[in-house]
Amino acid sequence: MEKLKYALYTGCTARESTPELLKSTLAIADKLGIELVLLDEATCCGASHLQDYDDFLSLVLNARNICYAEKLGLTMVTICNTCQLNTAMTKHRLDTNPELKARVNAKLAEVGLEYKGSSEVTHFLYALIQDYGLENLAAKVQVPLSQFNIAPFYGCHNIRPSELQNLSNGGENPYNPTSLDDLIIACGGVNVDYEEKNKCCGFHAELQAPKTAAVLTGNAIAGAMDANADWMVTPCPLCHLKLDVQHHNASKAIGRDVKLPVLHMPQMVGLALGCTPAELGLGHHVTKVDFV
């Protein structure tokens, strides 16, 4: 297989509150022989909030991020669902609206950049599945996760709206997504089915609507617990923050004690590939990962 190479847009969270996500991403890329070039020039994508304030500014900044992947001639991979949504949405809007693209490029020209639309944008989860291949990944598994019931938590911004997401996620159906389930199986684990796996964790309204956010998180963890999951796995650091850090508020909101260890997608893959807990940053979790 030709060596895979991508431009990695880390987003902010992986460099701040979820350092274990960046660490584990680099660790498994290394094990799998995937080359990731860090886009250190990139800014925050605005997390679906900047565009509420200033839509045009958000477009310009996201287009600038993509420019740096284009300069490298590489596909951009994201490791945060919301980064994926914002970047893919920017790309889609610019690629389908020449007038808007010209307006954005007029601004980018001031700093010597041009958005062309030549780089694809895809989440690392889908790059692993579609480009690396589940069979190739399964062949590299050293420590099958066979003793674990694992609950996939997809996170909204990788699966909805499918009209946009299907450009990069291999046609995942938001009402019955399978990618994370397939990845769990490829890692030798047992995938757990539960109603909340494709629902929202509430992260984006945490400050404005704390009760709504907490109930959604509580329902998600409770659903996974009731389906006998030993732990959860998610491709989104924002979902991770919510599920890993906010379980006490979630418990209060739904009137039931809920708590489960939650792994980032690359941490799960890393465990199966034989990475050490330290290489995967498992010590950074608030809900302790007590099973390794």
């Binding site: 679906s48 949504l85 909204c156 911004h157 909805r160 709206p161 499918s162 938001p174 629902k199 929202c200 509430g202 992260f203 984006h204 309204a205 404005q208 609507a209 709504t212 956010a213 959604l216």
Partner: peptide, 11 residues
């Protein structure tokens, strides 16, 4: 402001 941005309405 209470929208959680789940995108389900668009879907």
């Amino acid at each position: 402001w209470d929208c959680v941005k789940c995108m389900e309405c668009a879907q």
